[in-house]
Design a protein around this nucleic acid. Sequence first.
DNA 1: AGAAGCAAAATGTCCTGGACAAAATGTTGA
DNA 2: TCAACATTTTGTCCAGGACATTTTGCTTCT
Lengths: 295, 295
Amino acid sequence: MLSISAVERDTGLSKDVLRMWERRYKFPKPLRDRHGERIYPPDQVTKLRAIKRLMDRGFRPGKIIGLPIDDLNSLGTSYTAHEDHDVEIDAILALIRNHQLPDFRQKLNQLLMKQGLQRFIMETVAPLTTAVGEAWVRGDFAVFEEHIYTEQVQSVLRNAIAASQSHTKPPRILLTSFPTEQHNLGLLMVEALLVVDGATCIPLGTETPAQEILRAVSAQRANVVALSFSAAFPDRQAASGLRELRASLPREVEIWAGGGCIRRLRRAVDGVQLIKSLDQIGTLVAGWRTARGIV
Amino acid sequence: MLSISAVERDTGLSKDVLRMWERRYKFPKPLRDRHGERIYPPDQVTKLRAIKRLMDRGFRPGKIIGLPIDDLNSLGTSYTAHEDHDVEIDAILALIRNHQLPDFRQKLNQLLMKQGLQRFIMETVAPLTTAVGEAWVRGDFAVFEEHIYTEQVQSVLRNAIAASQSHTKPPRILLTSFPTEQHNLGLLMVEALLVVDGATCIPLGTETPAQEILRAVSAQRANVVALSFSAAFPDRQAASGLRELRASLPREVEIWAGGGCIRRLRRAVDGVQLIKSLDQIGTLVAGWRTARGIV
DNA sequence: AGAAGCAAAATGTCCTGGACAAAATGTTGA
DNA sequence: TCAACATTTTGTCCAGGACATTTTGCTTCT
């Protein structure tokens, strides 16, 4: 049984939205504790998570909020049933689910060696992370299992990055996310891809306030600010945050924005490069260099 | 000029708190746009940030909200005047302050090689992290500089950990923190020290709910749960959280708790090992093993 | 003096229900 | 086909009241 703020944390739906849905759609329908405050039973929270997940892919709440949980899940899976249902990916997921930690770590390192860092990111880490997110929403993955996954992948990626960054050239790229955006893996994947291209990365970790980004750009003489947004990040906050940042940053500093949230943005943001696929990163770096006559 | 949600993002103060302060303390006093919605001038946002920073350090809003911005800043600086200046530490801090990122990274690696992982943690990373925290409170360190510091140290530590964990023995130790406790470096330092002692670490990252800790313990067959608390964590929450966890965890699973918050706890918590200094970790591991006749 | 218990003050979170801004969708006309 | 406009859907903001929780200050007991 969770309080409204716990549900906000757990689902990413703001308190205002939770109350508004209750008013408009009659769901969720939390019980009340003895002080009249909302308390949400676990099954309703699960359904809320499923709804949020579908909304992150473009479904609209009014259309799906009335459906039973099973329909929501099948909607999610049918929607994502990629033609390339990778056997390899499933096998790796099973390692975590069966709690074979050393095997999992070894498998990751083995794939890294076999594929090289770039393909490892594109073909293994990215789809694996998506799969973990989906399994988590369906309830097939426990929170702690997702934590373990994140830690292990983080470890492998950070090692690979450190090993690859011997020689760096321009552009100098500042990597971070806006406040409330805590997902680190996306940032690490981008950093790895950039390091492969020989760019100079200045990772700031997650959740840097806009003003601090400005200060960091000038202190570190960055040429580019790269921002990561998970699918759970609210579109509007992303768009308005990017516009504000663009307005206050010198014109010659580029802004690159990527991640699940960006992928579903319809309209472009003026003066901001929206990255809809990890493929683009190499092209962007190359483009930046040729535009300035740098080899 | 920022909207209320932009200010929430930038300062970390919730909308409810912003409105409540306006009602109670007459600050902030945002203007209104033509729709009657609050818009905050930059100087008020700056002051809000200063207040938030002092609150994180233990000041209470009612006492400081009326002060002019200059007083707030000097309050921050006067609060921590330290004496025991380690020359080496200061020199390293200067590298970050002067934005010499490659030099800083190199210095860390050099010290790691010279001192070995264990002494590197105890004599370099721990005091450095404390110094950074203090400089940040004084305002001598920008938020983004602290972010850069954290990222770099994290990178070095994770590499060292990965390199050291070739073969591991019992005990199996689960590493994490309670929800709202986001500081990762403490956890990493502990993991590094444990790896040096050959223990098997299962890092869960930060912010694992109590129930998930239970599930993780049983899934991973952990012998010990190690929890980290930064100095900013409220004492009571720590104590009550530890008691609850102790009550719901099997007796044979030990709980070890450490960090700034634990260091100032007066009373012991029944059945919980309080770690007041990083020195103790080696002893604890050795003690666990001898008690069970493991070499 | 120090600890423990308790009352008062300070502070944050939650509530309701109305208003309306912003985005998405549908419709019409060129 | 596209653009302009109307309509519907959805989310955010507002006000001001209530009260839970935490901190502080006071009193009493050891």
